[in-house]
């Protein structure tokens, strides 16, 4: 990768990846908390999706995320502002919605146990990967578990790099799907089976 990268797009790509890695580390583990908090304001699931997506847009637009000390609190504050804007546009606002607005600070401090579970549990990863079609599963395993590059995987499996990329594409979609399903069930994808309190309501 050292040769030939002379360009602005390499910088843009690196910046994009830095922010996504930061989000993966700091926000994704607690995404379900934010969603649950938004749900308390009686927003429809579609609206929650939109608020989340807008919040992610805000983050994607930041030149850098290094100045953010408390990522989760930042995410909550962003979601709160977007929610508030949305409520202001509505003609009728449920009272619950208003009472929720300023409770985010309590939510933004996860319990030590939730904080420790800062990445998807190993079993979860394996369970998601296991459900992929054979060829895709092999590629995703090598890429995500073994940490091989797409190029290395292509050489190893004797297929073209484009074919590997296509399997990665299927993998990315499948993971997205797994998240959506977990969301509709109100689960934390991250915290293994031991913590499913979300289901109680």
């Amino acid at each position: 990768m050292r040769e030939g990268k002379t360009s602005a797009e390499a910088e843009i790509l690196a910046r994009r990846r830095r922010i996504a890695t930061w989000v993966a580390r700091e926000i994704v583990p607690h995404e379900a908390r934010v969603r649950r908090w938004l749900a308390r304001s009686r927003l429809s699931p579609e609206d929650i999706d939109e608020v989340m997506q807008e919040a992610y847009c805000r983050i994607a637009m930041l030149p850098s995320v290094d100045h953010i000390d408390q990522p989760l609190a930042y995410m909550f504050a962003t979601a709160r502002n977007l929610l508030l804007r949305r409520l202001k546009r509505q003609q009728v606002v449920a009272l619950e919605a208003l009472s929720v607005i300023d409770t985010w600070q309590d939510e933004a401090t996860p319990s030590p146990e939730a904080q420790a579970a800062s990445r998807i549990s190993y079993e979860r990863v394996m369970a998601i990967i296991d459900q992929l079609p054979e060829r895709c599963r092999k590629v995703v395993e090598l890429r995500k578990i073994e940490g091989w590059s797409q190029k290395e995987i292509a050489a190893h499996l004797g297929i073209t790099e484009k074919a590997v990329e296509k399997q990665v594409w299927t993998g990315v979609r499948a993971i997205r799907e797994a998240w959506t399903q977990a969301e509709t069930r109100g689960e934390d994808l991250l915290l293994g089976s031991e913590r499913k309190e979300a289901r109680s309501w």
Binding site: A20, A24, C57, I120, I145, G147, G171
Partner: peptide, 22 residues
Amino acid sequence: LRQGLLLRMQAHWIALAPATAE
């Protein structure tokens, strides 16, 4: 809104690792 969609999906992809390279 696509900026957010892209970031979120990319983060999910990156997060799918028991231990990351980073």
